[in-house]
Simulated scan of single mutants.
Amino acid sequence: MVKHSQLFIDSLIHPKKLAAYRLLTIGKTIQYVFLLIAVISIFSFSQFLSGVSESIYNIEGLTEYVEDIQWLLYPFAFILQTIMTTILLFVKISIYAFIGVVLLKLMSRRGEYRHMWRTAALAITWGTLLTILFSIIQLSNSLSTLIEAIITIFILALSSIKYPKIPKK
């Protein structure tokens, strides 16, 4: 059985191995996606905490009110951020999987959407880590998204090369 750490390392260093992971169970792939979601959620929640503390000191009238409901605000924000991150990441993976199926057709490779979805779930690792980095260095969201998309599609193209060829008739 493949460990999540091995999936992480291979998705960063060995994009061609991602084609072999298309045969993983969907449960293992979704576990990996939820680990990425946890990393993103923890990072974005820490940004939220630092942003709230700054805004509390800038707006004096709300300081007392925020302190009164702080016990409710933080768990609600964390849950909301996790839900939104989950939805966003699953939609991104699905879109990249569709692009990957188009790449398979263009390269005359054999594969199904479900296989490419698993490959895209692993290929999105670089994009996820770079999104966190770009958020730290405050790169614009549109440029960050464009760079993430290019890198993910490039990794999908590299892994598509290792999919089996369609036999000639």
Rank of each mutant, 00 (worst) to 15 (best):
L62F: 08
K17M: 10
Y163F: 15
L104T: 00
L133H: 13
K28S: 10
E112N: 13
I132N: 12
S53P: 00
T63R: 10
M1S: 02
P15Y: 01
L18Y: 00
S41Q: 08
Y113P: 06
F154E: 07
V91D: 14
Y163V: 05
A38D: 12
V52N: 04
S144V: 01
A20P: 02
L156C: 09
L35Y: 12
Q138C: 03
M1R: 04
S94N: 12
I9V: 15
F76D: 04
Q138Y: 03
I69A: 14
L130R: 07
F154L: 14
P167N: 01
I95T: 07
I150D: 12
T85E: 04
L122C: 02
W71F: 13
V101H: 00
S46A: 15
A149G: 07
S135W: 11
T125S: 09
I93P: 00
Y74K: 08
F78A: 08
H115F: 05
I9K: 15
T131Q: 11
Y65G: 06
S46T: 15
V66D: 00
I37A: 12
L103T: 03
F76V: 13
F48V: 07
A20R: 06
L103E: 05
T131P: 04
K28M: 11
A97S: 15
L7F: 05
L122N: 00
L156D: 01
E112M: 12
L49G: 14
Y32K: 13
S53R: 07
Y113K: 05
R114Q: 07
V2C: 03
L24T: 07
A121P: 03
N58P: 00
K162L: 06
S44Q: 04
T63E: 12
S140H: 14
A20H: 06
I42Y: 14
R22H: 04
S135Q: 11
